[in-house]
Each structure stands twice: as structure tokens, then as C-alpha cells.
Simulated assay, not measured.
Amino acid sequence: MLEIKNLQVEFKNQKVLKGIDLSIQEGNVIGILGKNGAGKTTLFDSLYQSIKFSGTIHWQDKILKRSSVSYLETENYFYPYITGEEYLSYFSGKKGINFNEFTEKFNLPLTKYVQYYSSGMKKKLALIGMLMLDKPINILDEPFNGVDFEGVHILYDIIKQLRSEHKIVIISSHIIETLFHTCDKIAVLQNGRIEKVYEKNEFDELNTLKF
């Protein structure tokens, strides 16, 4: 289980996260829903151990280490003169997954320089690299941004696969329908705190909230 207790983050004497409490079981997909500036990315950066925070984050009763987390950021940086094939070569292969199948489905020109990829193609390439890391905790920050219709459905399949492997998946998306389709629970982040965690049978209530 991933357990977050009293997570607080402060920037320039202003508290962004004011005491996040959240527990996530293995094999669960949880969505994080909130307005722009609510602190979603700050929460993800804390889980990825890339910023300072107070409070505790435990994974399987031990302090969470960055080595247990893979993080697909909203915007991904690539060196300008690197091909898709060269980028993926930096990642170790994952047993049981045919990545050639994924690259074919995503229709990625792996021999071309990534600087000529569209934003959606870069997102797909980064996603494949993230999967190759084979981590127990997977953070997807706005993974559907810039991805075409076919890519969205491939993403759905990938998320289902991660769930079936008993991995934790944490997703943010401004497209609430994608969260409804993929998540077991959705946590609403407001005013620096988790206001409520909605179970699947409560998702309809989220349509009445404004984000």
C-alpha cells in the first residue's frame, strides 16, 4: 500500500499542499481531480521525491524511494538530436511486454529525430519508455493531452494492464470522462487538501462539481 500522511509543501512562504492524507492499494487506479493551480503537479513531484516536503510517504511500510516510481510528466524533454529508437534504448526491457507492438500501434517513426515528432507522438514515446522502467508506482500527469483518438484507447489498454499487474496508477486529467473510464477512485484536490475520495459508484456526483 502507498500511504501519504500530512503531506505539506510550501513555496515562498505560501502553502500549496496543506496536509494531504491518501492511501492507495496495489492494483488500483486513482484519479486526481482539481482546478489549475490546485497542487496536482506538486503532489506528483513530492511522490517522485523531486521537491522538499514535510509529512510522510510510505510504500509497503517503508519510506518511499524514487526508484519505485515512474513519472510521465505533462511536458517531456528530449535531446534534440536523438531518434525514438535511441531514446528507448536507454530503458531496460520489461518481461512479458512486446514493445514493438506498442510502437506499431502508436505508429511512431522510431528512426526519425524526436525533435520532428508532434506533441502527441512525444507523449507516446515517453509513455513507452516509462513502461519499460517497470515500476510499482506509475504517475501519469495529463497523459491524454495531445494524444489522438486511437492513442487514447491504447492508453486505456495500458492502464488496464498495469492494474492487472497489481501496480498503482495515479492519473490527473482535465478530461473528466477519461478518469471515469480508467479509475477505480477519484480524489478531489481543493485548497491544498484532498476534500473527498469518490468510489466508482459515486462518480456521477462529480458531474455537479466545477473544475
Rank of each mutant, 00 (worst) to 15 (best):
2 L>C: 00
3 E>Q: 07
6 N>I: 04
7 L>P: 05
10 E>A: 03
10 E>K: 14
16 V>S: 01
18 K>S: 14
32 I>K: 02
34 G>P: 02
36 N>A: 06
36 N>T: 09
38 A>M: 04
39 G>W: 02
40 K>C: 03
43 L>G: 01
43 L>W: 03
44 F>L: 09
45 D>E: 13
46 S>H: 05
47 L>C: 09
52 K>C: 14
53 F>I: 04
54 S>G: 14
57 I>S: 08
59 W>T: 10
60 Q>W: 05
61 D>N: 12
62 K>D: 11
64 L>I: 03
66 R>P: 00
69 V>Y: 00
74 T>A: 13
80 P>L: 12
84 G>N: 00
84 G>I: 03
85 E>Y: 13
89 S>P: 07
93 G>K: 11
96 G>T: 12
102 F>R: 07
103 T>N: 06
105 K>L: 15
105 K>W: 02
106 F>S: 00
109 P>I: 02
109 P>W: 00
110 L>I: 09
112 K>M: 12
115 Q>V: 14
115 Q>D: 13
116 Y>G: 15
120 G>Y: 03
122 K>V: 01
126 A>T: 15
126 A>V: 08
128 I>N: 07
129 G>N: 12
133 L>Q: 08
134 D>K: 00
136 P>Y: 00
136 P>W: 01
140 L>A: 07
140 L>S: 09
142 E>Y: 08
150 E>N: 12
150 E>L: 11
158 I>M: 04
159 I>M: 06
159 I>C: 05
161 Q>V: 15
162 L>T: 04
164 S>R: 12
170 I>C: 04
170 I>M: 05
179 L>I: 12
179 L>H: 04
182 T>E: 03
186 I>K: 01
191 N>G: 11
194 I>H: 10
196 K>M: 07
198 Y>M: 05
204 D>A: 14
204 D>G: 11
204 D>I: 12
